[in-house]
Design a protein around this nucleic acid. Structure first.
Lengths: 155, 155
DNA sequence: TATTGTTATACTCTATAACTATA
DNA sequence: TATAGTTATAGAGTATAACAATA
């Protein structure tokens, strides 16, 4: 039993000698999976997931994004934004406001309820990161954030 | 036209003021999407995708992993490993060898052809990163890699 | 009893194409 | 002609449950 556990952990360490352990694509994939699996629990408390949270966050930013701008920023197809907005709108968290200058475009803004939920979900995720997150100090965290911002928005 | 492009880019910059731009989960998700979209072209040349490449890479590592060990290292369910190995085995890139000490377990090893393809795919991805990748210098890249290794394997 | 590999299933995410109404 | 939003569809990725063989 304890031996089994030890063997399994040793295997995990052993495989770190593989070239894959230096592969950026693999590390980004595994890091993201670990991170969102933890976030999921905190967001589920508010009926949200990562994508709904992201849209709500931008809607609550005060920048009045259009659906197209949401799609570009989140790197999702415009068709996916439709379903996400539909969902949040039905719950009364965001509103579609037609632009006064271009009747094709919708401006997405968070309602009071939407801002409230976003604030609570954000706090829950932040607290969760502190209690269960990786052992990154403030400096490491800021460094990682800055590097990811460059990779994420290079295209 | 050029104005439209400018407006769109400004919107993207404008939304960076949102709290989401500091959100680790979002940045990991977007970084991964950007990275694997680029990798996809290089891997497709060899009939591979990110997950097949990862399994092949571990099979070619010389560490003789079992299917269970592959699942743990890649953070995939054991049932997903079955299909990936089936695929690679049919192409003659890996073999299932039953363990001499435990008849339940399969040890996965790359064939000569598998090692060959893995080497070529790895070189193509590396070259592609240099020509199309983010403007990270060697130090930034190493820093990012080390931080991601910690996040990816914290659990 | 517990673990390895396996099959099956459902759900989410992602990628594409085509349509409409406006510009 | 081009763009914003929408609908539809198929494929890839992910999460769970259950089973047979073996430990």
């Amino acid at each position: 039993m304890t031996e089994g556990h030890t063997v399994k952990e040793n295997a995990k360490e052993r495989l770190k000698s593989a070239t894959l352990y230096e592969d950026m694509g693999f590390l980004l994939t595994r890091s993201r999976a670990v991170w969102v699996a933890r976030d999921r629990a905190f967001f589920a408390e508010f009926g949200l997931n990562g994508r709904l949270y992201a849209v709500l966050s931008l809607a609550a930013s005060g920048e009045n994004p259009t659906q197209r701008e949401l799609a570009d920023f989140l790197r999702l197809d415009a068709s996916q934004i439709v379903a996400l907005i539909d969902d949040l709108e039905q719950r009364g968290y965001v509103e579609r406001r037609s632009s006064p200058t271009d009747r094709r475009t919708n401006i997405i803004v968070a309602t009071d309820a939407g801002r409230q939920v976003h604030g609570e979900a954000r706090a829950a995720a932040r607290d969760g990161e502190q209690s269960m997150g990786p052992s990154l100090n403030a400096e490491d965290r800021a460094t990682l954030l800055a590097l990811l911002q460059r990779v994420a928005f290079e295209e």
